[in-house]
């Protein structure tokens, strides 16, 4: 395939994961098109190329539906950053990140950066009518690591659509997200002290109002710069680059992190 090199080769790959309906597509639309518009549930994954200064950043917006679960690890292959997205008003969507999506990131780069993003912040802000006590959803949890979608799940909960009723209650606290971040680092066998701190990597956003969306993407772009530079040097050395390269861990710095 000699023509292959003609393609605008992405320098780095970022993947957005998360349960269906949490707003992954909306976040990306907000960032790339500066607006919030109607979406349909994503099928498979959608690939976007974002020009970031002199660099080409590829972003994969994946489908949250269980139907496409099997593809997740393919989209994640060689990723330099993964955005784990949940819906701030839906506790279950946070639990799903750990149960269903975390294992997909096994194919990501060793030094992959993880961001935890609670979306739909507009539903929890000051406008929220009431912040009633809400311990209810804890029993939504259960069933360990649904790795194989169809069979592995003894007690299928109601479908995610039904669970994501829009309550005005903030169901997920920042602490929940922060502790998930810690568990992710442990899962990855990373030393917390060498990694980016949770308070930098847990975001709350609103695709609807735009709150914190640019900050999310641009912070991440800055953070993957080292990966970009590394990929570029490698490409100069050998013409056939594959994004799955796992070499060179730990070269990450916090350079330009704002």
């Amino acid at each position: 395939m000699p023509e292959f090199s003609k393609m605008r080769k992405p320098d780095v790959k970022i993947v957005i994961l998360g349960d269906m309906n949490v707003g992954k597509t909306s976040l990306l639309h907000r960032y790339t098109e500066r607006k919030f518009k109607d979406t349909v549930s994503t099928v498979g994954g959608a690939f976007f190329l974002k020009q970031w200064g002199p660099y080409n950043i590829s972003i994969w917006d994946t489908a949250g539906r269980e139907q496409f679960h099997g593809l997740g690890s393919m989209y994640c292959r060689g990723a330099a950053a993964v955005i784990l997205t949940y819906d701030l008003t839906n506790w279950h969507s946070l639990a799903e990140l750990e149960e269903r999506f975390l294992s997909l990131t096994d194919t990501a780069n060793h030094d992959c950066i993880y961001a935890i993003v609670g979306n739909k912040a507009d539903l929890t802000g000051n406008q929220a009518q009431q912040v009633a006590g809400q311990d209810g959803p804890t029993e939504d949890q259960g069933e360990g690591g649904g790795v194989n979608p169809p069979s592995a799940c003894p007690t299928p909960p109601a479908s995610p659509v039904l669970l994501s009723r829009v309550t005005l209650n903030k169901q997920v606290s920042r602490e929940d997200a922060v502790s998930l971040y810690g568990r992710i680092l442990r899962y990855k066998g990373m030393d917390e002290s060498n990694c980016l701190p949770a308070d930098k990597m847990c975001f709350e956003t609103s695709a609807k109002t735009g709150y914190n969306v640019d900050a999310l993407f641009e912070t991440l772009f800055d953070m993957v710069l080292p990966s970009i530079l590394r990929n570029r040097t490698e490409r100069e050395q050998s013409p056939t680059v594959d994004l799955e390269d796992h070499k060179e861990t730990g070269k990450r710095t916090r350079a330009r992190c704002c």
Binding site: T25, D38, V40, F48
Partner: peptide
């Protein structure tokens, strides 16, 4: 799936 007009979709 036309809402995705800007991206390139890859789906089984």
């Amino acid at each position: 799936s036309s809402a995705f007009q800007a991206g390139e979709i890859w789906t089984p």
